[in-house]
C-alpha cells in the first residue's frame, strides 16, 4: 500500500497536485464552517432557537454573494488565459506530427522526435470523435486533445525528456475504445 501511494504521487502532474491541494484546502475550510454551523445547534437548543438576529443574517447574505463573485473573478483572471486555445505560443514549430484517430487505433507520422524540439500535433479523426491523451514515461498525462472528424485541432508541446511516450484514446469511440493505445511514440536525446 505505501508503494502504491508513492506511485500515485509520481503519476500526478504538478497541475494535478495543485488542483488536489487547492481543492482539499477549500473542502477543509468548508467542512470547518459546516461543522461549526451544525455544532451551534447545541447552543441553539439551550436558547430555544431564539438567539440569532435573523434580519442581520439576511442583510449579510448579499455580501457573501459579493465575496463569492470576487473569488471567482480572481480564479477566472488567473486561469482563462491558460485555456488550451489561448495557451498556444507563437514559437516556431520544429516538427509537425500528424495524429489521426480511426476505430480503434492511431495513425502517427512521424513516430519519433527529438527532445528539445517544439512539436506541433495536428489531430483529426477519420470516423468518430476520439481524443489523444499523451502520457510520458512516468505515466503522467501531459496533454489531452480532441480528435474531431472533418476538423483538425493543433497543439504544440516541447519535450524535455527522452523516452517512450504512450497515446491513449480519451473520448469514448466504441466497443474497443480501451484498446485504442499507441504505445511507442519515441523522443530521442
Amino acid at each position: 500500500m505505501p508503494d502504491r501511494l508513492i506511485t500515485s504521487l509520481v503519476m500526478m502532474t504538478s497541475l494535478g497536485k495543485g488542483i488536489a491541494t487547492g481543492y482539499l484546502v477549500f473542502v477543509a475550510l468548508g467542512l470547518i464552517i459546516a461543522f461549526g454551523v451544525l455544532w451551534s445547534t447545541k447552543r441553539g437548543r439551550r436558547e430555544g432557537g431564539q438567539g440569532v438576529d435573523i434580519e442581520r443574517a439576511e442583510r449579510a447574505e448579499p455580501w457573501w454573494g459579493v465575496f463569492v463573485v470576487v473569488l471567482l473573478a480572481i480564479l477566472l483572471g488567473m486561469t482563462i488565459w491558460r485555456a488550451p486555445w489561448f495557451a498556444e505560443g507563437d514559437d516556431p514549430r520544429d516538427v509537425q506530427v500528424q495524429v489521426t484517430g480511426i476505430q480503434f487505433g492511431f495513425l502517427v507520422q512521424p513516430t519519433t522526435v527529438k527532445a528539445g524540439q517544439n512539436v506541433q500535433f495536428n489531430v483529426t479523426s477519420k470516423d468518430v470523435n476520439h481524443a489523444i491523451a499523451l502520457f510520458n514515461p512516468q505515466g503522467q498525462m501531459i496533454m489531452n486533445v480532441q480528435a474531431v472528424p472533418e476538423y483538425t485541432i493543433s497543439r504544440s508541446y516541447t519535450f524535455t525528456e527522452p523516452g517512450t511516450y504512450t497515446i491513449r484514446c480519451f473520448e469514448f469511440c466504441g466497443y474497443q475504445h480501451h484498446k485504442m493505445i499507441y504505445p511507442a511514440f519515441q523522443v530521442t536525446a
Binding site: 497541475l15 491558460r82 489531452n144 480519451f170
Partner: peptide, 17 residues
C-alpha cells in the same frame, strides 16, 4: 467546489474525460 474546478478550461489537460 469540484464543479468550479471542472468549469476551468485551463485544468482540462489534467481532468478531461
Amino acid at each position: 467546489l469540484q464543479g468550479i474546478i471542472n468549469a476551468t478550461a485551463a485544468f482540462q489537460d489534467t481532468l478531461h474525460n
